[in-house]
Design a protein around this nucleic acid. Structure first.
Lengths: 296, 296
DNA sequence: TGAAGCCATCGTCTTTAATGATGGCCTGAG
DNA sequence: CTCAGGCCATCATTAAAGACGATGGCTTCA
């Protein structure tokens, strides 16, 4: 048994047929057939049931399939490991919460891009759940998400700490003064946003329930909307601090148990840590230190 | 790059030379040389530095090596997974503490051996540290050790709970009555035994320190020695209960925080769980239930 | 009933790998 | 100093493995 055998096997299993696998593998059907037959012979067990519509995995085939994919992944990773000679370069796909991307990452990204011009960094934003899913699916090397994350396949490292505040129009001095009923909407980034549920919980604990929602695609949209008195939102203090100083917004601190959230950098436990990623993490840590220093 | 390439690469790296690798792989040196050269060409990086005494890994080679071994292991595991058709059979290497082997395992082993005659079970005894090391080195599929175990590479499952007691000659009714000084020895299974440190700690907390040690290779040896009044030892209650009833020994219960230890069944997180092992774990759990029932 | 899609088989051909002999290089013993 | 014994590189040759294309049998669906 050989990795090449497993590659063919995997394609046949995934595509459900030898013809289709042959097409994908840029070879002919007879070759696929022969190699599968040989593999079955060597393993001493049939891997597929043949029928007229194609083939189907047998029990033995189902046991083999996960190994075929794992071996394939490992070989690809090995190649990357050999090519990664310690100088960050190549593609680097990172995920992030939109707020983190807006508040924390600009200096990090700027420093990183300047220092490692050979890296093609792609930043991908979305909710924590989306980002975690993509990291697990190996679509992203790592992501900034709302921590703490407890998943056996992931390792996390806390990198930023945010203080979330309620944000309202500047005329609202105290939360009591919030208008009730249809006049007030909660404004969130979009469905599934990590902060949405949190905001609803926070308001609910203060007896404010059943609010309408307004969804935006950008943080600027949200801020504009809140400035205009259309609603209330929940954002990191650092996002709204300057707008607040300018008198355009008011923010309302929350107790630590509600307002403190940490942002964690998560990645698959078993995935290769490229030099590009390691360097990025260094930059992110440096950004964190700088922030902490500034706060002192 | 292919698993066959990696197999050759791994042998060359491990043996430090192409001639030696060729001998191990049952082929000729020129073949090894050619394939390594081809592999280097395809990867675009030299993997070995050649010199007159043999070869040495380059940085790129060092990055590749762990993948070579992992791919090799994965293929071997894949073969086993295909062959394992759900009927427990083949070799099964288990580790255990000696006390667990003596007290808990006999019924489990008997039931297992009777039920699955096709399994070649090998029981390996030693200290927790030894067993854990061997599980990590993949020399054992799993082991019974003194829990709880916290290691990222291992998964554990508590299976037995032991009550450890101090064991003395029958004439010793209370611990106060223990003779001090050279008259008393602590009797342990052997250096490195998990219970040794525990016993010393327990005695130290009662002001008994600096005792001589006496080491034995078997539990029977220890018991005989304690019966004869030569020393004190620490053993699971279940080991000494019958001897105590017969008036040959006295045992002295310990508070729960000192005397309760759990025995955990540990295995590598990433290792294949053979049907034989799964069935064994079932038997062990059944034994645990039986014990618990009997205790009620 | 016939076209379309599927897999199995076979002989041929190409590519790849293995072999054994040779040569150059270095090292350490005599 | 020299020579034997280890090492790796190279090359022509041979053996094996894999890929190919054509064919045929089977089932399904129109």
């Amino acid at each position: 048994m050989d990795s090449a055998d497993l590659r063919i096997f995997e394609a046949v299993a995934r595509l459900g047929g030898m013809n289709r696998a042959a097409a994908e593998l840029n070879t002919v059907q007879s070759n696929v057939t022969a190699r599968i037959r040989l593999l079955e012979e060597r393993l001493g067990a049939p891997l597929f049931d043949r029928h007229s519509r194609g083939v189907e995995l047998t029990a033995a085939g189902r046991r083999l399939l996960p190994y075929a994919t794992r071996v394939g992944r490992l070989l690809a990773e090995a190649r990357r490991a050999v090519e990664d000679n310690g100088v960050p370069k190549g593609p680097l796909d990172i995920g992030s919460l939109e707020t983190t991307a807006a508040v924390r990452l600009p200096p990090v990204l700027a420093a990183y891009a300047a220092r490692y011009p050979e890296v093609d960094l792609v930043l991908n934003t979305g909710t924590s759940a989306e980002m975690i899913e993509r990291v697990l699916a190996r679509k992203l090397e790592a992501a900034f998400v709302c921590g703490p994350v407890d998943h056996p396949e992931l390792v996390q490292e806390p990198v930023f700490e945010e203080e979330l505040v309620l944000v309202t129009a500047p005329s609202i001095r105290r939360l009591d003064a919030l208008p009730r009923g249809d006049d007030l909407k909660i404004v969130v980034l979009r469905a599934g946003c990590s902060y949405r549920q949190k905001l609803e919980d926070i308001l609910a604990r203060r007896g404010i329930v059943g609010l309408r929602r307004l969804e935006f695609g950008t943080i600027d949209g949200i801020i504009g909307c809140v400035m205009a008195g259309l609603g209330v939102t929940l954002l990191p203090l650092s996002v709204v601090e300057s707008a607040s100083r300018a008198g355009k917004l008011a923010y309302h601190p929350l107790p630590a148990n509600e307002g403190r959230v940490e942002t964690a950098f998560v990645r698959r436990r078993d995935a290769f840590v490229s030099t590009a990623l390691a360097a990025f993490l260094d930059c992110a840590r440096a950004g964190q230190v700088a922030t902490a220093d500034a706060a002192d």
